[in-house]
Nucleic acid binder design. Sequence first.
DNA 1: ACTAGATGGTTCC
DNA 2: TGGAACCCCTCTAG
Length: 521
Amino acid sequence: MAPRTRRNAFPKVVIERDSESEQSSSSSDDDDDNGEEPLSDSEGEEVVAAAAAGSGKEEKMEEEDAAVKKKGKAPITISLKKVCKVCKKPGHEAGFKGATYVDCPMKPCFLCKMPGHTTMSCPHRVATEHGVIPAPLRSTHSPLEYVFQRQLRPKIPPIKPAHVIPNQVCCAVIRYHSRFNPVNDGTIYAASSDGTISCIDLETGLSSSLMNLNPDGWQGPNTWRMLYGMDINSEKSVVLVADNFGFLYMVDTRSNHKTGDAIMVHKKGSKVVGLHCNPVHPELLLSCGNDHFARIWDMRRLEARSALHELPHKRVVNSAYFSPLTGCKILTTAQDNRLRVWDSIFGDLDSPSREIVHSHDFNRHLTPFRGEWDPKDPSESLAVIGRYISENFNGAALHPIDFIDTSNGQLVAEVMDPNITTITPVNKLHPRDDVLASGSSRSLFIWRPNWTSEAEEQKDERRIVICGNAEKTRKKGFGDDSDDDDMDGGFKSKGKKTKSLKLEVRESKSALVIAKANGET
DNA sequence: ACTAGATGGTTCC
DNA sequence: TGGAACCCCTCTAG
């Protein structure tokens, strides 16, 4: 209706239908020159109309018309063809078919980022090793070591403990919101996106401010400093934090005052997202950030451009951790869908010992994924990390939590629960108990091994698939469960019914801490 | 049952 | 160098 009433001053509207023969033009000076690609000639708002197949076409066109009146642009093609929502081209469709995601064939593989195949047929997806890129031989130092690596090592049976995978949900909290930060015994040091560090006493609930990077308040985004990376060096009694402009700050935990000047540890203006103090060598600090680098620093000589080593990545580095027992290995998670492992910080650090392709290429709405070491693994090879792309699991699209042997890239276990459909980018294993805490910004789950009922193993033996029962709106056992006593530094809710709690999972030195704060406090 | 919007790194101009 | 457009598997309020 509306298009017919338009005058010559309004742009021509060409409608393309799903079948090529059915074409109509609503403009008065119709010249049928619509051989172009349906959506190639305009700004993109026509896509909306194109997607609106079926009902409401006329209303859509009226809206379209109104938009055109405002802009006075010409000409516009409205396509009623179905187009791929990813590449906007007809002939195929991407998206979920049931619980299976069908990839757009026009895009590179969503997993390994290489062209020529889709995620479904990606060699890294179907390979047993889950896509490991082996260490280059030049990482060996001497001919002797080369011989050892090549000829002797494979014959030595690896001492690999049987990994215990916490795979059953024992309590779950969905919908919580909180930003605290690391915890140390009865106190929490919190680094905040408002640029402050505060110290909170868990007994009294009182907090004191240690540092404020925005003393003048909001002066615009160019000056507002936000804290991201944080760790505590208890040996040196300092809290280390880093901001979104590439600078590192230190606060003495005894005097609760800032020590020294800010040090530029990453490219000026780039976000420093992770700090980790070496668990064995207190003088070593690891940082990572948005400038695509992870850097190893000597705490005794901390100044700009004085890093001991620079570990380059292809994309932003989400996290970087020393290994928990010897502190000799490094595990990083980068946004190029690769976990990287350096086997020895005292060896050749020019290139990673291994790159493991793994889907953690988060979209911007998610907390960045962080691969973390299993602190109980004496071989320092097991790592846990949430997976971004989903798997069709009995008709449900689930995002498992992967346990990966970083020595060979093998997927040891994938943990999931049919009731948990959310992505869990942050996962933490308990330092001694077989407990996994996993969560995102809005949810938290505690997993334990399923000893009572046998885990349902798929025919594929290398994988363990779990069926559990999570209570979606209410947690059970947490706080009432005496086993939780061993959560160092955490505090129980003393038998109270736990309703809406704020939760934060964090580690302090070697301990997993689950801090719970009642909304009242 | 549907969609807009929050959100941030990257790329292109 | 800065601004704008772009972006594949979210999540949820409306």
